[in-house]
Amino acid sequence: MTEFQQIERKQITFGGKPVPVAVVHPLDRASKAPSVLKGLVRGMRLTLGYFLRPWKVVTRQYPENRQTLRFPQRYRAMLTMIHDSQGFHRCTACKLCEKACPNGSIRVITQKGLLEGVNKLDQYIWRMDSCLLCNACVQACPFGALKMTHSFENAVYDRRLLVYNLNRYAGPPAKVLAAEPDTAKRRQMMEPRGRFDGPLPLNEGLKPVLAKTQESPVRETSA
């Protein structure tokens, strides 16, 4: 189908002047007709083949196949802080993830700890509405405190519900807490934090920047 028709270019004299013309032979075009029709029929046979074999349908019906959905292991849909069986997390509030995040979707808020000079985690604010799920924070964390999970059903009606705390308690990480034998004292070191503590209402202190010269929220919110 890609062979071009024969075009014969020659010069004729018209009114005494030489004029270049291209002569197209119409029967050349007509001789392509059978191959054109064959191509059309081939296409129609293909679609009819799929129509007559409805078992070849490849659709995965989402709401009905929820129980059997499998994703690649590296699929990233939501960030979580890993809490072990005793409920301890591993975050030391070193803020490496906050620095690694390309657009400031993580804010780590710290408070002075019982141990002198060492800050502990107060709130770990993660903005799902601006997170690009790039995994930089997970890779940057030297303690492996973060993890990306497969839970993708996160549609909301209100944008404020996409900014929340990832840590369930404010306090030292698992290493420190495990070294403390007394459970009562341990519980005293941990203050529970809810999912929406702090960030709601939306971003009163977390305004995005419009240009580099304007205020940068990084300096604003560290305690």
Binding site: Y50, P54, V57, Q61
Partner: peptide
């Protein structure tokens, strides 16, 4: 429905 089955998918189902 016919268009869908020509294209290896199912049409309106829900």
């Amino acid at each position: 429905k016919i268009a869908a089955h020509f294209q290896c998918r199912m049409g309106p189902m829900r």
